[in-house]
Simulated scan of single mutants.
Amino acid sequence: MTKLIKTLTAIAAAGALSAAVLVTPTEPAQARGGAVAAGIIGGLAAGAIIGGAAANSGYGPGYYYGPGPVYYGPHCWWHRERFWDGWGWRIRRVRVCN
């Protein structure tokens, strides 16, 4: 699961970088209406989200989160059993658990 998250994060980061390179402005930037500030804030927010996803691997420094306790119930299976019903031999399925 951790490799999947890292792979998806890398793909998202590569997509964001390629989109930033491909979409280039044709006019010089102008600081009117807060467009530059909105772009900076949006870039910081996207960087924080991508960085948080990359850093959140589930393992902290000095901590190990192993698999939790698992309850393994009784091991059961179906078995065919021959029995006498008073009139003749018959076969029935019986569930056997250990």
Rank of each mutant, 00 (worst) to 15 (best):
A13M: 11
Y64N: 12
Y63K: 14
L44V: 10
P69R: 15
G58L: 04
R90E: 01
A31V: 03
A16Q: 05
K6D: 14
G58V: 04
Y64C: 13
R80P: 03
L17S: 05
G42V: 04
A13T: 12
G15K: 08
I11S: 04
W89S: 02
I50V: 11
A13D: 04
R93Q: 06
L17A: 05
V94F: 09
G62K: 06
Y59T: 13
W84S: 06
A20D: 10
C97W: 02
I41H: 00
V23N: 07
H75F: 09
A20K: 01
A54D: 04
L4V: 12
V21C: 07
H79Q: 10
G73R: 12
F83D: 05
Y63E: 14
R90A: 06
A31P: 00
S57H: 06
Y71V: 15
A16S: 08
R93E: 06
T7E: 11
G62Q: 06
D85W: 02
S57D: 08
A35F: 09
A46W: 02
L4C: 13
W78N: 09
I5T: 13
P74W: 02
G58N: 08
R82G: 06
Y71G: 09
I50N: 00
E27V: 10
I49E: 01
R92M: 10
G62A: 07
I41P: 00
A29K: 15
A54Q: 03
R90D: 01
A37W: 07
D85S: 02
I5V: 14
I91Q: 15
P28I: 13
W87V: 12
A38K: 01
I50G: 00
A14L: 11
A37P: 04
A37S: 07
G58P: 02
V21Q: 04
C76G: 02
R95D: 10
A16P: 01
A16K: 01
G58F: 05
I5W: 04
Y65F: 15
E27N: 09
G86E: 08
Y71D: 14
I40H: 03
G39I: 01
R80Q: 07
K6R: 12
W78V: 15
R90L: 04
G73F: 11
A29Y: 11
A38F: 01
H79W: 11
A55P: 01
I49Q: 01
V23C: 10
G60W: 06
K6H: 12
Y64K: 13
L44E: 04
G73L: 11
A12L: 05
W77D: 07
P74H: 05
R92D: 09
I49C: 00
R93I: 15
F83W: 09
T2I: 13
G52R: 03
P61W: 06
V36Y: 03
L4N: 13
G58A: 03
L4F: 13
I41R: 00
H75G: 05
I41E: 01
C97G: 05
T24Y: 08
T7R: 15
V23L: 12
L17T: 02
W89P: 00
S18E: 08
V70F: 11
M1K: 14
G88W: 05
N56R: 02
M1N: 12
R82E: 09
G66I: 03
F83S: 07
A45H: 04
Y65C: 14
